[in-house]
Computed example of a mutant assay.
Amino acid sequence: MFRIGGDLEVGRLGFGAMHLATEPGAVRENALAVARRAVELGITLIDTAYLYGGGGNEELLADALFPYPEELLITTKIGISRSSSSGEWRYDGRPDVLRGQVDQALRRLRVDRIELLQLHRVDPEVPLAEQVGTLRDLRTEGKIGRIGLSEVTVDELAQARAVVDIASVQNRYNLLDREHEPVLAVCEEAGIAFLPWRTVAWGDAGARAEVAAIASESDATPTQVALAWLLAHSPVILPIPGTSRIDHLTENLAAQELRLNREQRELLDGLA
């Protein structure tokens, strides 16, 4: 278990809802079933975003899971908007946009407060202090419980923390891609939850002979080895692997039971 922000307790292996389809029909019914099964299997942290279907993913989770179990945290992300003329997505950290997206997320998720709200990307055209300052004000107003950031550098994290407490960071990170190791180090020192996305390098880890060998000797899959390594690598890491299949969901969750020995961890540590 991990306490986000020091008080919000969740299981360390979460679920990323990005791959859940929102269009009508059989694919949506499957997505609803996967979301419900995730909670049945004990998932207490689900990650979504306005970007995922322009809010459709948030609505899907509400349709699947509302009223929510008391222990379930659904965290969403804002700060990216879509042009009404071109349909293109862009970073958008303007205060009025952030406020509007929070209000829309509250409505779609059917809640009065978002317990963990993350800035999806830092908008380079708006001062970072202004962006996180808006989120701080929304927290003061009671619409947000805790504030997180996504895809930030060490410097951006420091700038944000000078304005408001940061409870989580969601950066790309996995066994073979450790570009954000310095950010992880800051999070570990400060007790900030680190939610890696692209947790298994989109299957590339399984192509490495070292990973395949450890999977074979552990009676596990390469995906499970990659997730088990993340869980063992730092106590603040909360992986959020996503899938649209119940069998893959079950496989991912089983990684919590895999215990890598010291020799295996050292071998995997040296891959990147």
Rank of each mutant, 00 (worst) to 15 (best):
A31L: 05
L13D: 03
T243R: 15
R37M: 12
L268R: 08
N57S: 07
P127L: 01
G87A: 08
E125H: 06
R121T: 08
D7R: 10
G93N: 09
L258E: 09
R245G: 12
A201H: 08
R161H: 04
L51A: 07
T153Y: 03
Q101D: 02
G53P: 14
R178S: 06
R107M: 07
P235Q: 01
E266G: 09
V163F: 00
E188R: 06
Y91W: 08
P222V: 01
H233W: 10
S218A: 13
L60V: 09
Y91S: 11
E257S: 13
R3G: 05
Q159S: 03
A35H: 12
I166G: 04
A35S: 10
R178W: 08
E151K: 00
L73I: 05
G5L: 02
W197P: 11
E156W: 01
W202Y: 03
V183N: 05
A26P: 15
E130C: 00
A49M: 07
G25P: 14
Q264R: 10
D123N: 02
L72W: 11
V183K: 04
M1Y: 07
I114Q: 06
N57E: 10
G16A: 00
G100T: 08
T250C: 13
T243W: 11
G25L: 03
V169L: 02
E23V: 11
L117K: 07
R208V: 08
P235M: 00
I237Q: 08
A213P: 15
S218D: 11
E188A: 04
H19E: 10
R198C: 06
L109P: 14
E181Y: 07
L72D: 13
V39K: 15
G191V: 00
L51H: 10
Q256P: 12
A26K: 14
F2Q: 02
L157T: 06
A21Y: 08
G270I: 09
A162Q: 11
N174V: 01
E71Y: 13
R245A: 12
G87R: 14
P182E: 04
I246P: 12
P67G: 07
G53S: 08
V163R: 01
T153D: 06
G6S: 02
R259Q: 15
R82T: 15
F66N: 13
H120K: 11
H180D: 13
R90P: 15
V111P: 15
F15P: 15
E115I: 04
G242N: 09
P239D: 04
R265V: 10
E210C: 01
L61C: 11
D269S: 04
L157Y: 01
T243D: 11
R94G: 11
R208T: 09
G145K: 00
L231C: 06
A35E: 11
